[in-house]
Amino acid sequence: MQKIIVKVCVCSNCVMAGAIDIISSIESLKKIKTPLGYSIKITPTSCPKNLSHDLNSPVVWVNDDMMENATTQTVMAKILADQQA
């Protein structure tokens, strides 16, 4: 089964901008009874130090592609796109 790796930055800026809610909503996919056909591994991470966070948090990496100003919606869209690719 395809494995999708999601990393979510949990620095102060990103947590304030909803990082934990993104983690929660991706985790909640595991509870859906209809098989999704892929598995997701989600890890909280801290940001590279040189990344300015004022304007682009929260930052999420889906399979190592960085997404700025991520929302549950955009992360889900990326997961779907990667899974179909």
Partner: peptide, 11 residues
């Protein structure tokens, strides 16, 4: 538990 624009503006 859902981050919405409401949460965003407040914070």
């Amino acid at each position: 538990g859902i981050y919405t624009p409401v949460t965003k503006i407040r914070r």
